[in-house]
Design a protein around this nucleic acid. Structure first.
Lengths: 147, 147
DNA sequence: TGTAGACTTTGACATGGTGGGAAGGTCAAC
DNA sequence: GTTGACCTTCCCACCATGTCAAAGTCTACA
């Protein structure tokens, strides 16, 4: 049995996060010493490592709760685990695509920006009037404060 | 001149966010009517659209503050704009790589998970002992609650 | 036995950008 | 004059994590 600091370094989960996970019910409340110190067994640390690994793979705390339940359930169907994982993959991929879209746009804009002393800049021009709507007070650059 | 709701729909920035941007100093405080209602000009909406576009490209509010300053500065150097953009591209790419790493790992694990009624599951096995450290209380699966 | 230092406890507050809602004031149309 | 749509400010929530503070506890050493 070890204190929270030891459990933290052994699991890679900070003491703060261990307390947090306990507070939201992701892990069962730790045993306490007479003085109120939390005590952790090697098995507890094992659970924390599981959580840490799942977090590293980007699973939300909500997902991890599901994975932990399945992990502990000897009669689980691997299909249930796979379902959580594939849903997560899909979400991650969607996020990646979104970010990639931003990068693509920005790269294109940056490529066409000469990046020197001159003020002319396609990046700002894009931000200025990307929607093609009316650009009141001057078309692309030159905005000396609208108020 | 229009009220905040109109400015919101015209710019694509919610009224809530317009007030927030004002509160953090990203935009200058709006003019007020006698009753205290905020009033926005077409130019103000233009600024809001600029912000909206930059947010869509994933720029942080901090970055946008810099971009707005440059936008308004007729004597700016395009190099300054490009610097912000390329730094942002780098950050985005780092995030993408991180997420892609997660996806790659998860895809590999999911591929090897038969996903049927059987409990055996490489995804859980990975989470269980990914660090290769001591797995106290039983190696891979079978954890009927550690407490 | 005392004490120093490392540890633990709870609690509050911050992050970032957004949404929701409550309680109350204003405006426009009818 | 009333109704309904709008506006105001203020507070709370998210998600996962960090920081800091005040106070209590344990351990090792003199």
């Amino acid at each position: 049995m070890m204190n929270i600091g030891k459990a933290a370094s052994a699991s890679g989960v900070s003491a703060k996060m261990i307390r947090y996970y306990e507070s939201i019910g992701l892990i069962t409340p730790a045993q306490r010493s007479d003085a109120g110190y939390r005590h952790y067994s090697a098995d507890d640390v094992h659970v924390l490592r599981f959580i840490r690994r799942a977090r590293d793979l980007g699973f939300s705390v909500h997902d991890i709760a599901g994975l932990l339940t399945l992990w502990r359930d000897q009669g689980r169907a691997s299909a249930d685990v796979k379902r959580i994982a594939t849903a997560h993959i899909t979400a991650l991929q969607r996020k990646i695509d979104e970010l990639q879209g931003m990068v693509d746009t920005l790269r294109t804009l940056a490529e066409h920006c000469h990046g020197d002393q001159r003020p002319d800049c396609p990046i700002l021009a894009d931000l200025d009037a990307a929607d093609g709507g009316p650009a009141p007070g001057g078309s692309s650059c030159h905005h000396g404060g609208s108020k």
